[in-house]
C-alpha cells in the first residue's frame, strides 16, 4: 500500500482503536497492524504527538513481568478530533469513490 495513504489514515485508525478501550503501546501497535500494514516504530511517535496535543492521557499500570505499562486513554478533545477526522475521511472517501465510478462508466 502507498506509504502516503498509510501516513494519512494512521492517525484516524489509532484514534478509533483507543476509542474502544484504553490500551498500552504494544496493544495499539498490534491492533493497528491488523488493519494497516505499518512500520511498528512509527506508531509510538504518533502516540507521543497525540498525547502532547492533549488527545490522549496516559497512566501507568504495574505489570507482572517487566516494567510498568503505559496506558493511553482518549480524552474528550481527542474524541471530538476523532469524530471530525472520521467525518472528513468518510466524505473524502465517498467523493473519491464517486469519481472512480464515474470514470469507470465513461
Amino acid at each position: 500500500m502507498n506509504a502516503q495513504f498509510k501516513k494519512g489514515v494512521l492517525e484516524l485508525v489509532v484514534l478509533i482503536c483507543l476509542h474502544q478501550h484504553d490500551m498500552y503501546g504494544y496493544e495499539v501497535v498490534s491492533e493497528v497492524s491488523k488493519v494497516i500494514d505499518v512500520n511498528e516504530g512509527t506508531i509510538y511517535p504518533l502516540l507521543k504527538r497525540l498525547t502532547n496535543e492533549k488527545y490522549f492521557e496516559t497512566y501507568l499500570v504495574e505489570s507482572t513481568e517487566g516494567p510498568p505499562r503505559k496506558y493511553y486513554h482518549l480524552t474528550k478533545s481527542g474524541e471530538i478530533y476523532k469524530n471530525e477526522l472520521k467525518e472528513e475521511w468518510i466524505s473524502f472517501n465517498r467523493s473519491v469513490m464517486k469519481f472512480i465510478m464515474e470514470c469507470d462508466y465513461n
Binding site: 512500520n39 511498528e40 516504530g41 512509527t42 509510538y44 511517535p45 504518533l46 507521543k48 504527538r49 502532547n52
Partner: peptide, 17 residues
C-alpha cells in the same frame, strides 16, 4: 528489523516533537 531503517525512525520521532 521490524522497526525498519533507524534514521527514518529517528526522523519520525523527532518530527513528533
Amino acid at each position: 528489523e521490524d522497526f525498519g531503517d533507524m534514521d527514518e525512525l529517528v526522523n519520525e520521532i523527532l518530527d513528533a516533537y
